[in-house]
């Protein structure tokens, strides 16, 4: 009796890259949420900055986890990442324009700009990794 090979269902392992990237996006959203929570009064920049810092740390953790992944379909990763990065930079530019147009200045503007930039890097990493992780590497 010959057993048919199991079909390849992709990478079904739980990945720290995905967890860190989504965690980074979540922290970025909380950081902005804190600023919104306090409007029109001055926001607690300590908490907003803290969550922005957390977002940056989680993004760094996602990058480290990604770099440690071997073997990995880097070609597929960068094919997807560069186009998604272009898209996120267009959106980031638009949102930055809207924020500045609305009169944001000083530290809240800096925090929101940092959050936008972090998200603009998180999303390409997340999407490109989600695609490339399922590529079968020869050998």
């Amino acid at each position: 009796m010959v057993n048919a090979p199991e079909p390849y269902v992709g990478d079904t392992t739980r990945s720290p890259v995905v967890a860190f990237a989504i965690g980074s996006i979540a922290c970025a959203l909380v950081s902005v949420g804190i600023l919104i929570f306090y409007v029109p009064h001055p926001a607690s920049l300590a908490w907003a900055s803290g969550f922005s810092g957390g977002s940056a740390a989680l993004l760094l953790a996602a990058m480290v986890s990604l770099l440690r992944r071997r073997p990995f379909a880097w070609r597929q990763f960068f094919i997807v990442a560069r186009w998604v990065f272009l898209l996120t930079m267009v959106y980031t530019g638009m949102l930055e324009y809207v924020i500045v147009y609305d009169g944001a200045r000083g530290k809240p503007l800096i925090i929101m700009t940092i959050v936008l930039l972090l998200t603009a890097i998180d999303i390409p990493i997340l999407w490109a990794f989600s695609v490339a992780r399922h590529e079968r590497i020869p050998g």
Partner: peptide, 24 residues
């Protein structure tokens, strides 16, 4: 961002292959 769009891109790229992975 975490579920829909990555799935969308993955399906699109997989369908373009000579032998798409139907299970995936």
């Amino acid at each position: 961002y975490g579920v829909l769009e990555p799935a969308n891109i993955l399906v699109l790229l997989e369908l373009r292959k000579p032998e798409p992975n139907g299970v995936l």
